[in-house]
Amino acid sequence: MDLAHLVLYHLSLCCKRKYFDFDHEILSFTNENWDSLLLGAVRIFPLSGTMMQ
């Protein structure tokens, strides 16, 4: 879900439009920029509320 929002936000900024073709614009942008869109390692913090220092 977050990836879809990120791609649509970027396309709307650079193309100045609201609607995009899924196959030709959204998928091609995602495939071309896949490495840049990947998140790093996810860190899980303890539920006790203490922050790691």
Rank of each mutant, 00 (worst) to 15 (best):
M1A: 15
M1P: 04
M1S: 09
D2N: 10
D2W: 06
L3G: 06
L3V: 15
L3E: 11
H5P: 01
H5D: 13
H5L: 10
L6A: 11
L6P: 00
V7T: 09
V7W: 01
L8M: 09
L8W: 01
L8I: 05
Y9V: 07
H10C: 08
H10I: 13
L11T: 05
L11A: 03
S12D: 07
L13S: 05
L13E: 14
L13K: 14
C14F: 04
C14N: 05
C14K: 14
C14A: 06
K16T: 03
K18A: 07
K18H: 05
Y19S: 12
Y19D: 08
Y19V: 11
Y19A: 05
Y19T: 07
F20M: 03
F20L: 01
F20Q: 02
D21Q: 10
D21M: 03
D21I: 07
D21Y: 05
D21G: 04
D21H: 09
D21V: 12
F22H: 12
F22W: 12
D23H: 09
D23G: 08
D23M: 02
D23Y: 05
D23P: 05
D23R: 06
H24Y: 13
I26M: 08
L27T: 04
L27K: 14
L27E: 04
S28Q: 11
F29P: 01
F29M: 00
F29S: 00
T30R: 03
T30C: 08
N31S: 08
E32K: 14
E32C: 05
E32T: 08
E32P: 00
N33S: 03
N33Q: 05
W34C: 06
W34Y: 14
W34N: 07
L37R: 00
L37S: 00
L38V: 15
L38H: 09
L38G: 01
L38P: 02
L39T: 13
L39D: 10
G40P: 08
G40R: 07
G40D: 12
G40T: 09
A41C: 06
A41H: 06
A41R: 10
A41S: 10
V42W: 02
V42L: 11
V42R: 09
R43P: 02
R43A: 15
R43F: 11
R43M: 10
I44K: 15
F45K: 14
F45P: 08
P46R: 06
P46F: 00
L47R: 09
L47G: 10
L47N: 10
S48E: 11
S48C: 15
S48L: 06
S48A: 09
G49N: 02
G49L: 00
T50K: 15
T50Q: 14
T50P: 03
T50V: 14
M51S: 15
M51F: 15
M52V: 11
M52D: 08
M52F: 09
Q53I: 10
Q53A: 09
